[in-house]
């Protein structure tokens, strides 16, 4: 069967049009592709390249293959930093999520001045990190801080004055509490916006069926917010795993991986090669977690 010349011209025109649109599409995404390649992919690949070298003080590099990886993995300080990072990430993610969800549920109820309270809760998140860090250091100053004044001098809960933020044994706990306090409003904000979109008739029907508050939470609220909370947990893990500013500014003694990498690469005997290696390892650990989480929890 032969197609009529008119039909074949039409097909051709459509093809040309589709090709034109495809070309236009590529042109439109080209700037983004170039930016992504140059700003994201290039530094990652270059960093991987650098991790295969050692550097002397004049900046000359010599190829060592996977020598830096062997050294880093054998370094007990790396294992301590990894352990501290896992502790920090797990507890801060858990803390911000639980607190954020609880506050969102509480502030979803009707009560006087709700708008004002909702805004105030956001303050820790919107305040600049440097100013809140100084405020915390001031509050926890072992000699002049208000915290020790109350908990040691007035209440006697602490037997002696302790430098909670500075002492390497307690600093990590201070950093965890600080991160939870600073970042829970983000979870609260996201969860609250999801809660407001939940159909109220579902709760009315559950009421009619005699479901308790807990049953309503389990059967309606949880499934409704599941994917939002799961995505937020993933985001928080990514952010907290790479967190540097909050931790380092509050107390440089908290040796999470990002701080350890900085100290290794830019202080003391400045080992750029091992610094780059640490960054690569950090990258792969995070990518591994993301792939696992996306498949198992987010079920994409």
């Amino acid at each position: 069967m032969q197609t009529s010349p008119r039909a074949s011209t039409k097909v051709k025109a459509l093809k040309t049009r589709a090709q034109q649109e495809q070309r236009l599409g590529w042109l439109l995404v080209l700037p983004s592709v170039v930016i992504i390649l140059s700003l994201i992919l290039y530094p990652i690949i270059y960093n991987m390249f650098l991790s295969l070298f050692t550097f002397d003080y004049s900046g000359q590099r010599s190829f060592v293959g996977f020598g830096n990886y062997a050294k880093v993995l054998a370094d007990p300080e790396f294992r301590t930093a990894l352990g501290t990072t896992i502790l920090y990430v797990v507890l801060t993610t858990l803390g911000t999520t639980v607190l954020g969800v609880v506050v969102a549920l509480a502030l979803n109820k009707e009560f006087p001045l709700r708008g004002l309270v909702r805004s105030i809760v956001l303050l820790p998140y919107v305040a600049p990190v440097i100013s809140v860090v100084f405020a915390w250091q001031f509050v926890f100053d072992p000699v002049n801080g208000i915290f020790m004044d109350i908990f040691h001098s007035k209440l006697g809960i602490f037997a002696e004055r302790v430098n909670i933020v500075g002492d390497p044994n307690t600093a990590v706990w201070a950093a965890i509490v600080f991160s939870i306090w600073k970042n829970f409003p983000f979870i609260y904000l996201m969860v609250l916006s999801r809660l407001q979109a939940v159909d109220k008739t579902l709760y009315e029907a559950a009421d009619v069926d005699g479901a308790s508050s807990w049953q309503q939470f389990k059967a309606i609220t949880m499934p409704e917010i599941y994917y939002v909370v799961s995505a937020l947990i993933l985001l928080r893990v990514i952010w907290n795993f790479n967190k540097f500013d909050e931790v380092y500014l509050l107390s440089s003694n908290v040796r999470v991986l990002s701080v350890y990498t900085y100290l290794k690469a830019f202080t003391g005997s400045m080992d750029f090669g091992q610094g780059a290696t640490l960054a690569v390892l950090q990258f792969f650990i995070l990518i591994g977690f993301i792939l696992f989480y996306v498949k198992k929890v987010l079920k994409w």
């Binding site: 072992p142 000699v143 002049n144 302790v162 430098n163 933020v165 002492d167």
Partner: peptide, 18 residues
């Protein structure tokens, strides 16, 4: 020393008579 790791900033404690 005053508790915890310290730096020059802790000279304030001297100015405060501590």
């Amino acid at each position: 020393n005053p508790p915890g790791p310290q730096t020059w900033r802790a000279r304030d404690y001297y100015l405060q008579g501590k």
